[in-house]
Simulated assay, not measured.
Amino acid sequence: MLQLVDFVVRNRFFLVFVLLEVLSVWLIVRSNTYWGATYFNTSNYYVAKTLAFSNSAREFTKLDEINADLAAENARLHAQVTSLTQRQPLDAPAGYVPDSAFASRFTYTIAKVVDNETSKANNVLTIDKGAVDGVKPGMGVISATGVVGKVRFCSANYSVVTSILHSQFMVSTKLVRSKEIGYAKWPGKDPNLIDLIDVSKYTKIFKGDTAVTSDQNSVFPPGIMVGKVQNVAVHPNQTFYNITLRLATDFRNLSYVYVVQNQQLVEQEDLKARTLEKR
């Protein structure tokens, strides 16, 4: 308290000067219409700027929460779209009615990417969901834009996913326009590009054609984006195209993913194993 009094005493002339200046400005604003309007507009401008900055800062602190909400909404929409497309397949013959359990067999679990690789020959990523969340090895993983990979290992709270950017990973892929089916396989170079192999050259393929997961796939729902055709080449002595796709998923900026569970996968795999045993 004594220090405050001492400060006022030592600076009393300066403080009186500042007080008189403020009083003078106030009197000018009150008695002069022009200066009053100028003060009003200027103060409103800076108040608006301050409020805008405050709102931006507040929204920035909530980005994680907003992203999580958007991811949850995307998971719900993925489930709805998959179920609808399976109940009413566009290329199904007249009279075909799929079983309701088959149409709704895919469910989605949201996960956040906590570690990611893109520069190796065999890349993996780690997500923050594991066995306690119902995640199991063999489940597919997608992003909001396309295919990501397949779960390889699980702990209680984390899972390691084999990325599509892995030399041993392949996914059955269909070209939407031509209906041709091949396999997407990464050549181990550019993380934005992937090869589409085993597509017959006796059909027309165009640059920009969309490639999605095919129906011949028990891990991924059909119709999930893989990429778009960037280059098409064919050699005279080959019966297949050399096709390069630009991946739909941007692996360098991957934040949230969706673990896909096929509720009928065990039944499908058991039946397939029994078939192989009988051969």
Rank of each mutant, 00 (worst) to 15 (best):
E73Y: 09
G95N: 10
S143T: 02
T126H: 03
Q80W: 11
K189F: 11
K189R: 15
K174S: 06
N192V: 00
T85H: 07
S143F: 08
I110K: 12
I110Q: 07
G188R: 04
N157L: 12
G182Y: 09
E180L: 11
F153Y: 14
R177S: 13
I181W: 11
V160H: 11
T145G: 03
Q88I: 07
K179S: 13
N116S: 15
G138V: 07
S159N: 13
T173I: 05
G146I: 06
T210Y: 11
V132H: 14
L90W: 06
F169S: 04
V113E: 04
T118I: 14
T213P: 00
V81Q: 04
W186K: 08
I142C: 06
D190T: 01
V171Q: 10
K204W: 08
V199Q: 07
L84D: 06
Q88H: 12
R152C: 06
L175W: 04
D91R: 14
S155E: 12
A156D: 08
G138N: 12
K136M: 13
I194K: 04
Y202M: 09
Q86T: 01
F206I: 06
T109N: 07
G188L: 05
L70E: 08
V141M: 01
C154Y: 09
A156V: 02
A103D: 01
S143P: 03
V212Y: 07
P191N: 10
D115W: 15
S218E: 14
L125N: 08
S218R: 12
P98V: 04
K150I: 09
Q88C: 07
E73H: 13
G140P: 04
V124W: 11
I205W: 06
G146H: 14
M170Q: 15
T145R: 13
G130K: 09
G188P: 01
E117P: 01
Y183D: 02
R87M: 14
K120M: 10
V113N: 03
A101H: 13
E117H: 10
L196V: 02
V113P: 02
S119H: 08
K112D: 04
G138A: 12
K129I: 02
T85Y: 10
D209E: 06
S104I: 00
L90H: 06
S218P: 01
P187C: 05
R76P: 00
D209A: 07
E117N: 13
V212Q: 10
M139G: 02
K112N: 06
L84T: 02
L165R: 06
A71T: 00
Y96S: 02
A92L: 03
H78C: 01
K136C: 05
Q168W: 14
K201I: 00
V124D: 03
Y108M: 03
K207E: 12
F206C: 14
I197S: 07
S167I: 04
Q80R: 15
V132I: 15
T203Q: 13
D209C: 07
M170F: 09
T203D: 08
N217C: 15
A144K: 12
V176D: 12
L70I: 01
F206K: 15
V161S: 03
C154D: 02
N192T: 08
V113Y: 06
W186L: 04
